[in-house]
Amino acid sequence: MLAFILRRILQSIAVLLTVGVVAFSLFRYVGDPINAMVGQDTSMEERAALRDKLGLSDPAPLQFLRFIGNAAQGKFGLSYRTSEPVGRLILERMPATLELSICASLFVMVLGIPMGVYTGLYPRHWSSRLLQAVSLVGVSLPPFLIGILLILLFAVVLRWLPSFGRGSGTVNLGWWTTNFLSWEGIKALILPSITLGLFQLTLIMRLVRSEMLEVMRTDYIKFARARGLTNRAVNFGHALKNTLMPVITVAGLQLGALIAFAIVTETVFAWPGVGQLFIQSVQFSDIPVMAAYLMLIGFLFVIINLVVDLLYFVVDPRLRSQGGAARVGGH
């Protein structure tokens, strides 16, 4: 087990380094960092001096190491657009995005898994077919369209929920501003979370459904039935437990996807998170922010993946003896 975890950690580091190379090349070769710092009147000599001072004339591997070193300390330089330190820009906006993503994934899990189990157990029932069809509509409607429709209905026509931003309900805890501590804040979270989660909800539901269908066919379940176990025990004790593995994998991956998909939701709802920051950076070609965002998402993914791997051990006892060879959902 220890060997397995070690291997996963090494792989994670490799992944992070790859992302680092991409981010570094972005930072170094797309748009000249010098141009972004000086005025156009600056002479060539001054530019060269600045270049030396910043270490931009050093060999690329050395520069890369320095970049990674700085990144590890959260230093990504100044944004081309607002001229503020990128690390601070992102940190300020991180809570908004994380809270939104967490809410959305809760929504996905709490609704998606039961719906998947139900449609998997009773695939031919009319309500399953209906859910299945509705879920397809969910995948087919682009998230921004869903957001617009929700705003129109709940904020403008019914006036139940706020239409944009985090609302006035944010509470500042010093290093973290949260929406969770006030009713106003929670209300502001509802529409964006649904918009963000709907796409993933249908994915999870369909995944659980097809896993359930597969498992219900296995001999293992047939034997369980033959032993005279109740439907309930078979369905939840045996079948659901076996579908959990791939669900955990996908759910983990989806949390990463949620953070990235927040870009669209944040744009529609003027939600002041990193996604909105990122889209502004793309429009402005603000490379330092883009590079930092890339590293951040890579880092989050690696962490999530590690957690998922560890969860396998909890869910599947076989892995504890086999040393993790039978990883599901990998390559």
């Binding site: 990235a260 998909f261 870009i263 669209v264 070609s285 890339l294 998402i297």
Partner: peptide
């Protein structure tokens, strides 16, 4: 790691 839309956005930004 990176959802398709994000990869596409990055390429566009570059």
């Amino acid at each position: 790691t990176f959802p398709a839309i994000l990869v596409a956005l990055l390429i566009d930004g570059v």
